[in-house]
């Protein structure tokens, strides 16, 4: 059964659809094809692991899916909205409302507390007040951070920071959450804990997710694994979830 068929069975629109998406960096002799005719569909409640060697185009795919980067060609539909030809301002709106990001490097604003980093997301969307605070507190509580609400990132451990980042990515109730190597900076045990949290948060919300990982031991938390090599999506296999 293909993933598209699965979604059809579930009766919901896919969170992400990419058709023949190509991304070429640079021009002429220096042109690098980071993504070549990538076609993928991710169901509304599906968690997908994206694995591949360094430089294979994982971050590029994620960036295009999240509206950070415009594709050179092809069609991208996120949360039911075609963003293939969206303007920079429209892409900003997509990032703000439809997707959540956990980046490989900087994820938190250092001069804001854990709770304020979550509230910032709502602030940028122009909503604030009791509801936002309640949602932020609930998320941080689920992530085991209820005692760390008022700590600055510098006062948190690496694992705690990563959990705050996950909370921040979920704060705008996205259709699709994108994780770029969320466990690479953590040891195996912490990595497992974070993956478990990601899985319960994502699954508990009925949200779709793509998780880039180098570590094949982490893929079992996902519904399926997609491999990428030299910008080409390789196989599409169902995993036996956790």
């Amino acid at each position: 059964m293909t993933s598209t068929a699965m979604n059809a069975a579930a009766g919901t629109a896919p969170a992400l659809e990419m058709h023949e998406v190509t991304k070429v960096y640079g021009e002429g002799e220096n042109a690098i094809t980071a993504l070549a005719s990538a076609t993928i569909s991710i169901g509304s409640n599906e968690m997908v692991a994206l694995v591949g060697p360094s430089g294979s185009g994982k971050t590029t795919l994620l960036s295009i899916a999240g509206g950070l980067l415009a594709p050179t060609s092809g069609q991208v539909i996120v949360g039911g909205r075609d963003i293939s030809h969206a303007s920079p301002t429209e892409l900003t709106e997509v990032r703000r409302n439809t997707v959540g990001f956990v980046f490989q490097s900087v994820n938190l604003v250092p001069f804001l507390t854990a709770r304020e980093n979550l509230l910032l997301v709502d602030e940028l969307r122009g909503s604030r007040g009791k509801q936002s605070k309640a949602r932020a507190d609930r998320l941080l509580d689920e992530l085991g951070l209820s005692k760390r609400l008022h700590n600055l990132p510098s006062q948190l451990s690496g694992g705690e920071r990563q959990r705050v980042a996950i909370g921040r990515a979920l704060m705008n109730e996205p259709a699709l959450v994108l994780f770029d190597e969320p466990t690479s900076a953590l040891d195996t045990q912490l990595g497992e804990q974070v993956m478990e949290l990601i899985q319960s948060e994502v699954k508990g919300r009925g949200t779709a997710a793509i998780i880039i990982t180098h570590d094949s031991r982490m893929t079992h938390w996902c519904d399926r694994t997609v491999r990428i090599l030299d910008g080409r999506l390789q196989s599409d296999e169902l995993a036996t979830a956790g």
Binding site: R96, F101, F103, V109, P110
Partner: peptide, 18 residues
């Protein structure tokens, strides 16, 4: 000094003008 934070904010949906 805070360009990383500003980049992050742009990435999570802050408009330039904000």
């Amino acid at each position: 000094q805070k360009s990383a934070s500003l980049t992050l904010m742009r990435a999570i949906g802050a408009h330039r003008r904000t």
